[in-house]
Amino acid sequence: MSDSASRPGMPTETLIGALAEDLAPVRPLPPAGLRALAWIGAVLILGLGLAAGTAEPSLHLAGHLGVPDRAVALAGAALTALTAAYAAFATSVPGRAAAWALLPLPPALLWIGASGLGCLRAYLAPAAGVAEGPGSGCFTFIVAVSLPLSLLLVLMLRRACPLRPNLTAALGGLAVAAAAATLLVPFHPHEATATDLVIHAVAVAGVIALNGLAGGRLLSAR
């Protein structure tokens, strides 16, 4: 493999020597899919921990799954979390196509579309006997759940080499926001109103934006 046209100069040769001396064995990172599943596992553990501290979340969950559009929205959010996490891990590896960033778009559209549909249905045919609760609880929930999940995801992503740190961080933010929204559903005692959905959307957008800004910095500082 010797190439006479590009004989290295002295400084580069010195650098190569220094790097070779510094060499320590490393374990190759697991494939992006496995790493995404590991993070999803942490999300599930957090969800179970929250469920253990709350009374009868399963009743709320069953109530939500009984309504088609809410079930679709829930599935969309869960799928968005899964695909966005995979895309974030894939784009953190050099040489993987940036087109992986498109993977979470269809489930995200499903999530947003079904949520909007649910909002429309609640407006046309309001469910009887459902008290409109304050939306600030949901906002706090999404932000509080997002913080540890974001931190964990950024730490995991940093172990790879994100050459497009802002794209990877934004995908991570989408994964975190979708995971938080999924976890919120079983703890959401009442039917989502338009106000709720707006608050959810603001919280989700905020989580994605914060991840994109702060995460991009954290991921590129290596």
Partner: peptide, 19 residues
């Protein structure tokens, strides 16, 4: 050197390097 753990041995090397 810093990112050498991010190379997946099951994948081609040159696209990783070129990126």
């Amino acid at each position: 050197h810093r990112a050498r753990a991010s190379y997946d041995p099951a994948r081609p090397f040159l696209p990783w390097l070129r990126a």
